[in-house]
Lab assay of single mutants.
Amino acid sequence: MALNTPQITPTKKITVRAIGEELPRGDYQRCPQCDMLFSLPEINSHQSAYCPRCQAKIRDGRDWSLTRLAAMAFTMLLLMPFAWGEPLLHIWLLGIRIDANVMQGIWQMTKQGDAITGSMVFFCVIGAPLILVTSIAYLWFGNRLGMNLRPVLLMLERLKEWVMLDIYLVGIGVASIKVQDYAHIQAGVGLFSFVALVILTTVTLSHLNVEELWERFYPQRPATRRDEKLRVCLGCHFTGYPDQRGRCPRCHIPLRLRRRHSLQKCWAALLASIVLLLPANLLPISIIYLNGGRQEDTILSGIMSLASSNIAVAGIVFIASILVPFTKVIVMFTLLLSIHFKCQQGLRTRILLLRMVTWIGRWSMLDLFVISLTMSLINRDQILAFTMGPAAFYFGAAVILTILAVEWLDSRLLWDAHESGNARFDD
């Protein structure tokens, strides 16, 4: 018995066209964080690309023209004298008006014999932002004059995390709450300039795509075929072959399989920071003279006294001054041990922890910024005066060393310790 099946006739004509040209192939790229070699397709503007294995951002879609970056830099340069030299806060102490600005706080630190601690604050609040705007201006002028731009481009990517104007702005709020127990506070004209400078700096850093600047100024022929001998440069993120001198053909720094002496430098910085954190938390970090009496505060006791007036601000200072430094030390110690013992479990967790400490590390400088600003506000000789204690130097040095330890660690070593050939990683 035959089955009668109805015929289905399409209502619209289906047209099949042959592909007349070869589909576009992607360029081969190595991930600078996990060293995976993959094919990167062509990316349009405002599109980002991520590593298929570790999800690290390979290409950032946010990109401004150099002219727009230069305009932002010149605007920031105009704001800087007002943000640093004009009063941020006014207080009335014992019937006398006192003005506080950024430069005055750094000068008070240096004047009291601790120039190293003052230079830490100076670099993060004044030096690094000033280098940022002058570097962008150098790129703008240098591109037109045919100057060598490689050193500036190499420095810009590392400079971003040292620009800490946003953290200093939080420190202004913390210092205001600490001082309000002794005097009446009012915002100064410099505060508005400083807030504007923070906003412009944040926007500029978020749109400063150094890798795209490398592509514009020093374009290189990408690798179009897969080759395990391809290496990625950690300076400019170019994937290719080393030249005859073993250097990256684009930025001219040595092109090595792994960062040289990464573990040794990381261990040295980490152990030194552990040693410095002990006096930083045991010795007094601030000293207040009130009517001839002397009151010393460690980091913890200062947080407890701050909690009596504002528990939320005390929580912020606790996280930045105690929780973050010790968390960074514990995480980095764990990561280094996992590399030495070739741990194969929990790779995803370790990668996330490394990215976390990379982002939060700079916030530990908050305590030094609060001390710097408070020193310029309260300084009335023996009637009422505020000065920093010996722990300030140890704390600042420990924070900087932990930042350097994270920067010096080559994250690809975590993958080397893991089993080879993993296309995915999980716990």
Rank of each mutant, 00 (worst) to 15 (best):
A2F: 05
T5S: 12
T11G: 12
K12A: 12
K12V: 10
A18D: 11
A18M: 11
G20F: 09
G20R: 13
E22T: 11
L23R: 14
P24H: 12
D27H: 12
D27A: 13
Y28I: 13
Y28N: 13
Q29M: 12
P32Y: 13
C34D: 00
M36D: 11
L37E: 12
F38C: 08
P41H: 12
E42F: 07
E42V: 09
I43H: 13
S45L: 12
S45C: 11
C51F: 08
P52H: 15
R53Q: 14
I58L: 06
D60G: 13
R62P: 02
R68H: 05
L69P: 13
L69G: 08
A70K: 12
F74S: 15
T75R: 00
T75D: 15
M76Y: 04
M76S: 03
M76F: 04
L79T: 06
L79H: 12
F82P: 05
A83P: 11
P87V: 06
L88Q: 03
L88I: 06
H90F: 05
G95T: 04
G95W: 12
I96R: 03
D99Y: 08
A100M: 02
A100E: 08
N101P: 10
V102D: 01
M103I: 04
Q104V: 12
Q104T: 09
Q104C: 08
G105Y: 02
W107I: 09
W107Q: 14
Q108V: 11
Q108T: 12
Q108N: 03
M109C: 09
M109Q: 04
T110I: 04
D114T: 03
A115K: 02
A115D: 12
I116S: 08
G118Y: 01
M120E: 03
I126G: 06
P129G: 04
S135M: 03
A137I: 03
Y138C: 06
L139W: 03
G142A: 14
G142D: 01
G146F: 03
M147E: 01
R150T: 03
R150P: 01
L153M: 12
L156V: 13
L159G: 02
K160P: 08
E161R: 08
V163M: 11
I167A: 15
Y168T: 15
L169M: 13
V170K: 12
I172V: 10
G173R: 01
V174P: 01
A175H: 01
A175S: 14
S176A: 08
I177K: 05
V179F: 01
Y182T: 13
Y182I: 11
A183D: 01
Q186C: 04
V189G: 09
L191Q: 06
L191A: 14
S193M: 02
S193A: 14
V195F: 10
A196L: 13
V198C: 14
I199R: 01
I199A: 14
I199G: 08
T201G: 04
V203E: 05
T204D: 10
H207M: 15
H207D: 07
H207G: 15
V210D: 12
E212N: 13
E215F: 08
R216Y: 11
F217M: 12
F217L: 12
Y218A: 05
P222C: 11
T224H: 11
R225A: 12
R226V: 09
D227E: 11
R231V: 08
L234P: 07
F238D: 09
G240L: 10
D243V: 07
R245V: 04
C248A: 00
C248K: 00
H252R: 04
I253E: 13
P254Y: 15
L255A: 15
R259C: 08
R259M: 10
L263W: 05
A269D: 03
A272I: 01
A272K: 00
A272R: 00
S273K: 04
I274C: 05
V275K: 05
L276E: 05
L277P: 02
L278H: 07
P279H: 02
A280E: 04
L282C: 09
L282V: 07
I285K: 00
S286N: 00
I288Y: 01
Y289G: 02
L290C: 15
L290S: 03
Q295D: 05
I299G: 10
S305N: 06
A307L: 08
S308C: 05
N310A: 05
I311E: 11
A314I: 13
I316W: 13
A320D: 10
I322P: 01
V324H: 15
T327F: 13
K328D: 00
F333G: 09
L335M: 09
L337P: 07
I339H: 07
H340Y: 08
Q344W: 14
Q345W: 15
Q345K: 13
Q345Y: 14
R348G: 11
R350Y: 12
R350S: 10
R350F: 14
I351C: 11
L354Q: 12
M356I: 08
R362M: 02
S364K: 02
M365L: 05
L373N: 03
T374W: 02
A385V: 07
T387H: 04
G389K: 01
P390W: 05
Y394S: 01
A398W: 06
I400R: 01
L401M: 12
L401W: 03
T402K: 06
I403V: 12
I403M: 11
L404A: 04
A405T: 05
E407D: 13
W408C: 05
W408V: 06
W408K: 04
S411V: 08
W415L: 12
W415Y: 13
D416R: 11
H418W: 09
E419S: 10
S420N: 11
